[in-house]
């Protein structure tokens, strides 16, 4: 199987503090990976390095055949192919939900307005908030906002989707509606890397689990193996607390 994302010996420091230590990771097309671990373990930083919201200092990150480095043009091309969903939604509050979704397709992918709107409505229907299209983000509930953010990312028709704790800022009763959308997306064959503590979701969709601690990948295993027979003691301890 080919690799759509390849990380080789990636190291990253915030000043003197090392947040990522020798990270090696290969992701195949259509693979779903869930990353878990205690806070401060570097999992968010890791996926933010994949679309270069954070810069790494050592090692190579290759996304869809393009190496991420200083060259700006490449980075914008990569970012257009990699969708990202944030913990805090980060919708654009000055634009309606529909405009949130059409803005980047129109200005970055140069889609005609009409096509962009059709695409947006298709994706909003997919996340089941097509009836909210003309409202502003401030008028929507947290769950609806996060689904809108997913639709916005999908409108760029990305090859890879990154999720940075997408349900952590939500009320418990809204978590399910967002996870349902993500499960649907996974079944559609999207390549996904998800940072989350929702282990039910992980068991359902993940091909592969990664456990991180102190900037290192402590354990990487097939999902079934990971939950039934974790190898390291640190993973066991973490799972015993979270499950």
């Amino acid at each position: 199987m080919g690799k759509i994302i390849e990380l080789k010996k990636v190291n990253k420091w915030f000043d003197k503090f090392q947040v990522l230590k020798d990270i090696d990771l290969d992701v195949a097309p259509q693979e779903k990976i869930v990353i878990c671990g205690p806070s401060g373990s570097g999992k968010s930083t890791l996926i933010r390095c994949i679309n270069r919201l954070e810069e790494h200092q050592e090692g190579n990150i290759i996304v869809d055949g393009t190496e991420l480095a200083e060259n700006t043009k490449n980075i914008e091309k990569i970012r257009a192919e990699v969708g990202m969903v944030f913990q805090q939604f980060n919708l654009f509050p000055h634009l309606s939900i529909l405009d949130n979704c059409t803005l980047a397709p129109i200005w970055v992918k140069k889609l005609p307005k009409k096509e962009a709107e059709e695409l947006a409505m298709k994706n909003l229907t997919r996340v089941q908030i097509d009836d909210q299209a003309l409202k502003f983000p401030g008028q929507l509930s947290g769950g609806q906002q996060q689904r809108a953010a997913i639709a916005r990312a999908l409108c760029m028709e990305p090859k890879i989707m990154l999720f940075d704790e997408p349900t952590s800022a939500l009320d418990p009763e809204m978590i399910k509606e967002v996870l349902d959308v993500m499960v649907d997306l996974a079944k559609g064959g999207m390549t996904m890397i998800v940072v989350t503590h929702e282990m039910g979701f992980a068991k359902e969709v993940a091909d592969c689990m990664i456990f991180m601690d102190e900037g290192k990948i402590v354990e990487k295993a097939k999902t079934k193996e990971f939950f039934e027979n974790p190898k390291s003691d640190r993973t066991k301890l973490f799972l015993s607390q979270i499950l």
Partner: peptide, 18 residues
């Protein structure tokens, strides 16, 4: 403006001026 607005714009492939 919160940092998230910059990050969301960047993550959609927008350059500095856009």
């Amino acid at each position: 403006l919160p940092k998230g607005q910059y990050e969301a714009a960047k993550s959609l492939g927008m350059g500095y001026w856009r």
